[in-house]
Nucleic acid binder design. Structure first.
Lengths: 248, 248
DNA sequence: GCCGATGGTTCATTAGATGGACCACTGTTG
DNA sequence: CAACAGTGGTCCATCTAATGAACCATCGGC
């Protein structure tokens, strides 16, 4: 139907990203394509500066910065980021805690922006991190406003535990989503990283439904239950403000 | 010699990234490939979730989050980022200003990490920004420790002015690099954005030479000349610390 | 020495990418 | 309103160029 070689090339590229640093044979096995084909693809991608081989370490392959530079320029989240950055900045100043902006990619949330806290004790999520929806405040908020179909599909996949406190029971998650909807924001105490509590709210486009979410997070010692409501309403208000400014 | 269709596909992808949101005809012109071919590539890339078409706006193409998620997972800079994040966090707390971590891609510096200030007045560079070397503290620091060949090649290209204060004379840049080397850090007052001053230092791998650089930046009203030395030595010390922890 | 890995290359076969020509549609202009 | 210059999109005969089985070279271990 369409450009088989391109498809395999991209599949190889994604495999490199996932397994890096990785060698030829392992890649060929992972993608289930003959070595010779993978080899040609690798050389091509190298010429294009999208991947590079380690100088030592038997010349294993990794993604090159150029690939990152190309794809990060913009990305669909960029318009969201543009309208979000102002309100998020205000929210950061108001709460003094770390703020995350995340958008969905397949079954994960991807962190596309972060504003830092001045505190020495910081909640840290690297930009570009892919985190499970059921284990994060952003993901839960997003799920809470997603369609039933999507939630069902999501919950059919095995729910891994990021920490001992992660919700792994689909029933429990469903109930929590209901709570989030009635409350307007999500609370995730230690479900993604032990000792980190986060409070999130969904960004909802009138036309497209939920398109991402935001959260404020910090050490559980600072984000105590008595602050949940204050931070929750602040996050929810900021999310509403961004939602209204969305292009859709 | 190798996989022509893949090459054109990647060229199309890069063109989309650069011109997004962009339509079929414009793309075909940009990459100088028949519309029909571009069309097939676009459909393929869409199936792979690497690009997406706007719902409104005549269905123009943009890079999808998935592409960003794939390439940001790791990227060669990731190991740098991993070892850098701790020291950078300390530097951010020490100075209270925005910290950037950038690595070279072709003739630009690409911002791969940022720790920002809690100040209302913020120096902001979006992640993934590609900035000219001669116009940025990070770039100048990187150049200062690059090979003569690379510097010569770089200076042969036209030096664009990002602001009225950008150095555009190759001689002047060369002299500045000398100053940076003897001082140990770079200073860039308003050369990238008017009213923003940045101080940078290079990350140097013993085996590979310069692999990136870091900088602290803020409004020129805060980063005044009397702070140059204090911040400069701090940045340089942090850079040295990271350099020693580098894998190479 | 053999064995099981690895990375890398060759080349006959034919799958499949190519691109010129074409259609349908929209908005502009004289 | 007819002609026109754009746009996105599709067909299909031609022949390029992607494929992959078979092959070789090298490495490390036992």
């Amino acid at each position: 139907m369409s450009t088989r070689s391109v498809t395999t090339a991209i599949r190889v590229l994604e495999a490199v990203a996932e397994l890096q640093p990785v060698g030829l044979s392992e890649l060929a096995r992972a993608v289930d394509v003959p070595k010779a084909t993978v080899q040609r693809v690798l050389v091509t991608l190298e010429e294009l500066q999208w991947i590079e081989r380690a100088k030592r370490d038997g010349g294993k392959w990794s993604i090159a910065v150029h690939a990152y530079a190309v794809t990060s320029r913009g990305s669909s989240g960029s318009r969201i980021r543009d309208v979000a950055i102002g309100p998020l900045s205000a929210l950061q100043l108001e709460t003094g805690e770390t703020i995350h902006l995340a958008v969905p990619d397949e079954l994960r949330m991807v962190v596309i922006e972060r504003l830092d806290t001045p505190h020495v004790l910081r909640a840290f999520l690297a930009l570009g991190s892919r985190i499970p929806m059921h284990a994060s405040a952003t993901g839960l908020a997003f799920l809470a406003y997603s369609s039933d179909e999507f939630v069902s599909v999501y919950l059919q996949h095995p729910l891994g535990a990021s920490t001992p406190d992660t919700m792994v029971d689909p029933q429990e998650v469903r109930a929590e989503l209901q709570v989030i909807r009635s409350r307007g924001y999500s609370i995730n105490p230690g479900g993604l990283s032990s000792g980190i509590t986060a409070i999130g709210a969904a960004l909802i486009s009138r036309e497209l439904g939920p398109v991402g979410s935001i959260s404020v997070s910090g050490p559980s010692s600072r984000i105590t239950p008595d602050k949940f409501e204050e931070y929750g309403t602040a996050v929810a208000a900021t999310a509403r403000q961004i939602s209204m400014a969305l292009p859709g």
